[in-house]
């Protein structure tokens, strides 16, 4: 399995809440690889790919945060026009639904990484394999 673990944290819409959560990670030497926030009027969900998901989860829960771990799919593509479009086509063709996604650029070699939360990880993984799309493992992410 190529799935990687994402941690999600419930964040109340209150001043200083986000900074307090991020500080917990910093204080425990946990590095953030990718981050995204989904927000509503009253609360948000902070989604993170970190260097050590188990430790992050444990430390956040110790500080009374609501945390959950979800398996997501991560892929790496060339940072070129049309690349994301073809990736989305692959998923659409195999009827994989995307709940949400976020992307970040690699520090070198003109690459982009995409984190995908889909309704069926195995199906997405299979589709990417068939199409020759590079999938990242947790180790890959940590080394980035």
């Amino acid at each position: 399995m190529n799935n990687i673990r994402q941690i999600s944290v419930f964040v109340e819409n209150k001043q200083g809440r986000l900074s307090a959560i991020i500080r917990i990670l910093k204080d425990n030497g946990i590095n953030i690889r990718a981050i995204s926030i989904a927000d509503t009027k009253d609360f948000g969900i902070l989604r993170l790919i970190v260097s050590d998901p188990d430790l992050a989860c444990q430390k956040l829960r110790e500080q009374k945060c609501t945390v959950t771990i979800t398996e997501v799919v991560a892929i790496e593509i060339q940072d070129e026009l049309g690349m994301l479009s073809s990736v989305m086509d692959i998923l659409a063709e195999d009827k994989v639904n995307v709940e949400y996604m976020y992307a970040f650029l690699s520090k070198s070699d003109n690459k982009a990484s995409i984190i995908l939360r889909v309704d069926d990880n195995a199906k997405a993984s299979e589709a990417f394999k068939k199409a020759g799309v590079i999938q990242l493992t947790e180790n890959n992410i940590c080394e980035l």
């Binding site: 999600s8 419930f10 989904a38 509503t40 969900i45 945390v67 959950t68 949400y100």
Partner: peptide
């Protein structure tokens, strides 16, 4: 709690 807004 889950990671999607929809479920909350």
């Amino acid at each position: 709690f889950s990671d999607t807004i929809k479920s909350l």
